[in-house]
Design a protein around this nucleic acid. Structure first.
Length: 580
DNA sequence: GCCGTTTTCGGCCCGACTGTTTTCAGTCG
């Protein structure tokens, strides 16, 4: 049972308790516990085995016991019991915009409503409006929430969110009287998916900014609008795909901008720690300032806020309360990887398999990005659906690479391959052919339904192969579309460390796999990481930036990432590995 | 349910906005 499975179970307990009217702090303890487990960088099974779960902040005796039961038996009788007490439909009702556990419980208690269909019928019959605490407006809002359930409220990928929020921020900046405007929230923290957009602006006069925002062409519905804040549903086409998200704008005076920026960037868990730290000093921290009412502490930037609390500046990507406060206090934060540190990439496709551009076009696009090398990693022979290359085509590609390299200057094409990891864990092609490549990326593209033990053994066997250089997209997930295959990543990372193999951060925004939590773990285990765009066209090389985001969220520095090295260093290292 | 080293009880971040109320509860972030 993975961390996410355990966290999901804890979240569900929290929701079920809420729906029973349980004390909110007790419910929050489960939500906090879920978040803590989700972002644990240590191995959960190990913590269970060592009986040290209870030492993790946020996990007490009760949660430690339940997590232990979940991890060791794969089941939790307490959760099953709660499920039996609460109709499943109530959880769906709770997910509606504007409806929380209290209202769901009231609807259930008073009207016996326990499905979305019954809720709709009750609203249409006018029964909901008659309830104490409800009214005509609430009833109409519930109907609206039911109608928009399919359209909004869904998370989108970071590339989609970035596109939409950039358009909105640009419009806000152009409004009269706006001094500064920034995207905050999960977009600024560079999470792999986003559920909404947070925008902060500063202006001496908020109302006109709010009113203009609510009338932007991207806005399809205004969810709420006050003097300093507006919530809207905004939509746009990003790369041809329709993206609809809730977008919140807050407008503050410019002297409050740093506090607002910090507050609305979150995460919630990070903010709670920061507020607590302020309280420990007899101060208060909120979006309106730091200090006391009598003695506010002026801050011009976010860095000033951290400094006032005796902390190093914490980059937004690290603000998850996963140790960044402690590290900032000890002045031991990593010097995070920067996009400009990247000097080339290794896993990309050309027309030799399922890419859309030639070797030369791809290499020139890499050069245009300022890179020194472009590693090709077309598909191997077994993957017929992606036009995997039989050995004869590989030799043809090698000849063309030599020819293009002789012609081009300022960029070097490296002869790589994305070799399928076959069902038994062996690599595609025989050893002689594999030895002809500069490096080998090993990836799983088939047999996703093996058991976790089988999949783990398969990948670990590939990692043990002397020819393998790096492991591609470790779980095969497609964000918001497909779960990754079941695999014990802890075992995979330990095996990679044992054999000195690199692990890829696949920068395609559909994948972002290895995820940031495991990136942090990989670094702790001494695994060298490599960021690859898995580009199938020249413009996709720029997707590498999303991989840099993941690396930063995983606390990586330039030295932790192979493709920050120069061409000469890369060639020397690859040659050394082939001799070993 | 978790936490704490002035602790084992009494707190738990806190403000904006909405819709229901006529002072506040619920929801959200």
């Amino acid at each position: 049972m993975s961390k996410d499975d355990v966290a999901d179970a804890l979240d569900e307990i929290g929701v079920l308790l809420e729906l029973q009217g349980e004390n909110a702090f007790r419910c929050n303890a489960y939500f906090n516990g879920a978040r803590t487990v989700r972002s644990l960088s240590a191995d959960l099974k190990q913590l269970v085995a060592d009986k040290t779960l209870g030492q993790v902040r946020g996990l007490g005796a009760a949660l430690a016991e339940k997590i232990t039961t979940l991890v060791t038996t794969g089941d939790l009788p307490y959760l099953a019991e709660l499920r039996g007490q609460v109709p499943a439909g109530l959880i769906e009702m709770r997910q509606l915009q504007g409806i929380g556990s209290k209202k769901v419980k009231a609807l259930h208690d008073a009207l016996g409503v326990d499905t979305l269909d019954k809720l709709k019928a009750a609203c249409e019959a006018g029964e909901v409006a008659k309830l104490k605490g409800f009214g005509a407006k609430t009833q109409a809002n519930i109907l609206e929430a039911l109608r928009f359930r399919e359209e909004a409220g869904k998370r989108v990928r970071i590339d989609q969110a970035t596109g939409l929020v950039a358009a909105l921020v640009e419009r806000v900046r152009a409004l009269p009287g706006v001094v500064r405007a920034e995207a905050c929230g999960s977009v600024r923290r560079r999470r792999e998916t986003c559920g909404d957009l947070d925008i902060l602006a500063s202006s001496a006069d908020a109302q006109p900014v709010i009113d203009a925002f609510a009338a932007f062409p991207e806005v399809v519905r205004v969810l709420g609008q006050g003097p300093t804040k507006a919530s809207v549903l905004a939509t746009s086409r990003v790369d041809g795909e329709k993206v609809t998200l809730q977008a919140d704008l807050r407008v503050v005076t410019d002297d409050l901008f740093p506090f607002g920026l910090h507050y609305f960037t979150g995460s919630k868990a990070h903010n709670i720690r920061m507020r607590q730290r302020a309280l420990d000093r007899g101060w208060q921290l909120s979006e309106y300032g730091l200090g006391t009412a009598d003695a506010p502490i002026a801050c011009k930037t976010e860095a000033d806020i951290f400094a006032a609390l005796d902390l190093e500046y914490v980059a937004p990507e690290l603000r998850e309360d996963t140790g960044e406060i402690e590290a900032a206090e000890a002045k031991a934060l990593p010097r995070l990887l920067e996009p400009g540190d990247i000097r080339g990439v290794f896993h990309n496709h050309t027309t030799y398999s399922d890419g859309s551009a030639s070797l030369e076009e791809m290499a020139l696009a890499a050069k245009a990005l300022g890179w020194e090398y472009f590693g090709v990693g077309d598909h191997s022979q077994s993957l017929a659906v992606a036009r995997g290359m039989p050995p004869s085509v590989v030799r043809k590609q090698w000849a063309e690479i030599d020819a293009v390299n002789a012609k081009l200057s300022g960029v070097r094409i490296l002869k790589g391959i994305e070799s399928d990891i076959l069902q038994d864990g062996s690599l595609d092609y025989d050893d002689e052919m594999l030895a002809g490549f500069d490096y080998v990326v090993g990836s799983v593209h088939t047999h996703f339904t093996l058991t976790e033990a089988e999949q783990t053994e398969r990948v670990c066997r590939a990692l043990a192969h002397p020819a393998l250089t790096m492991l591609g997209h470790a779980t095969g997930r497609l964000l918001l579309r497909r779960e990754g295959y079941k695999i014990d990543l802890e075992e995979v990372l330990k095996t990679a460390a044992r054999f000195g193999k690199m692990v890829e951060i696949n920068a395609n925004p559909y994948r972002l796999d290895l995820d940031w939590v495991h990136v942090k773990r990989a670094k702790a285990l001494g695994v060298l990481l490599v960021i690859n765009p898995d580009a199938h066209s020249p413009d996709q090389l720029a997707l590498t930036r999303f991989g840099v985001d993941v690396a930063r969220r995983g606390w990586l520095e330039a030295k932790d990432v192979f493709n920050t090295r120069s061409l000469a260093e890369v060639q020397a290292e690859l040659a050394r590995r082939k001799r070993a």
